[in-house]
Design a protein around this nucleic acid. Structure first.
Lengths: 258, 258
DNA sequence: CAAGTTATGGTCATGTCAACCAGAACCCGG
DNA sequence: CCGGGTTCTGGTTGACATGACCATAACTTG
């Protein structure tokens, strides 16, 4: 089954029939999937294209990588350009897309980044409404809103990635504000996973995972329907791979996307 | 904290100061980290570079992406070219690398793929020993073997990725032959994670996860030191995210990488 | 003040998993 | 051929995690 192909193994980077000095030229772009929570739903930041191709259509923000910067730097620059947020920690590269013809103008390979932010409603409100908007990911994924290029697939992959990261890392705190209640944190899981979690059990899991959330002495004011005021926490360390809350299908009523 | 940046949001893909029709040109390559198990160690396939830059140094195989093919197709083509193996299922894209200066010749962005194969010793044996080799990843990562470009980092990231995938997917069966014993499968986990797992408990976890391994009636012949002949299995379906064996630090003596 | 709502704390039953033990089936050396 | 060593296989047990559920606290509105 494993055969030997002796030719070319000694010269990586040069496919047969190609002159090493003449390589196909590509444009490299960095595209950002900026996710946020608004009214208990997962939203993505979209911009309306002002130039051809796909002029007037919605797309995720992005831009050309410059030869003098790294991919991460390009992503950070784009994020700051779009939202004014300057934080590198919550930027995650999650995929590269290079299908031929994905950009009708030229050969473009794009590197996709995922950014998780707390409510960026201020950006949309302050900007020309036609230029940028936060839309629920459900609308962007079911075709309600048609996206330019292959951006629908990119958003789909980003959401899938954040679903995993929610379980494997402490990324959930990036969705909420600098101080938050356990219920707000639970709303993140419920929105992203599309499930319903028991409040009491969720709380126990979160507070026993020590170092993740840190209690501030204060309490939040209850909402309209009243209720006991919730304790306020702030984010502690984000760990890699320690799994605070686990996704499970057997119980926990809800959709539980399998 | 969130400020409005009205300029340019309507025109994604065009950084300030750049003419849209004149974008920086990059070469796009696809590099492969081909991992395999040899004598209970995790190995990576390296090739010796025959041309400048880094001529004579070890590197991971790769090549230019062609404008007419997708990234996945380019990876599949490269894998077949290097090993003769033609299987797309075990190819995973895991990262893109575009630091300025990573290739002294020109601006190159590379998309890295991970391939997990059962022993490809035949490939190396059939090739000129100077042209290709299987080396333990430990040697490639601790600097014992110096790699060209930023390939050391790419290999490091690939190993980290496979450590995760081992827990989250059924990729472990890709390391072993078409039929295998539970002990061989356990050796994969032990080598990749650097831990020691209890044989009895491992077996129970594997066989209860139904559909993953399928018993063939046959048994393997014991090795030199004897022992009860082990039952032979073949790989069943590979699932996504169902976690057969879990990584844990508290017990299971060994290094148990944290 | 009563009813409704949310947050928080606790109990309990179940399931999972690591640790451990025992027997089965092979090897080798004497 | 027999006994010790080794590996594989199956079973038991105890600690712990987790889901389901109940009770109380502390707020809201009417």
């Amino acid at each position: 089954m494993v055969r030997v192909v002796p030719t070319k193994t000694a010269d990586p980077g040069v496919p047969a029939g190609y002159d090493p000095s003449r390589f196909p030229a590509f444009a490299v772009t960095v595209d950002m999937v900026i996710l946020t929570m608004s009214d208990s739903r997962l939203n993505v930041l979209l911009v309306r294209r002002g130039v051809a191709p796909f002029k007037g259509m919605w797309a995720i923000p992005g831009g050309f990588k410059r030869p003098t910067e790294t991919l991460d730097e390009a992503a950070k620059r784009e994020l700051a350009q779009e939202t004014g947020v300057d934080s590198t920690s919550l930027l995650t590269q999650f995929g590269a897309y290079g299908d031929p013809g994905r950009d009708p103008r030229m050969n473009v390979v794009t590197v996709a980044y995922l950014a998780v932010l707390r409510d960026v409603g201020a950006v949309v409100a302050g900007t020309d409404a036609a230029a940028a908007a936060l839309v629920p990911v459900s609308q962007a994924l079911n075709g309600k809103i048609e996206l330019a290029f292959d951006h629908a697939q990119i958003v789909r992959d980003a959401v899938e990635r954040v679903r995993y990261d929610l379980e494997l890392t402490g990324i959930a705190t990036a969705f909420v504000g600098p101080t938050f209640t356990i219920a707000e944190l639970r709303a993140v899981y419920e929105a992203v996973w599309g499930v319903h979690l028991d409040g009491a059990n969720f709380r126990r899991s979160v507070v026993t995972e020590d170092g993740w959330v840190i209690p501030t002495g204060r309490r939040a004011r209850p909402g309209a329907p009243g209720g006991k005021p919730a304790e306020l926490y702030r984010a502690g360390r984000m760990w890699k791979y320690s799994s605070p809350i686990r996704r499970s299908q057997p119980n926990e009523r809800g959709k539980g996307g399998s």
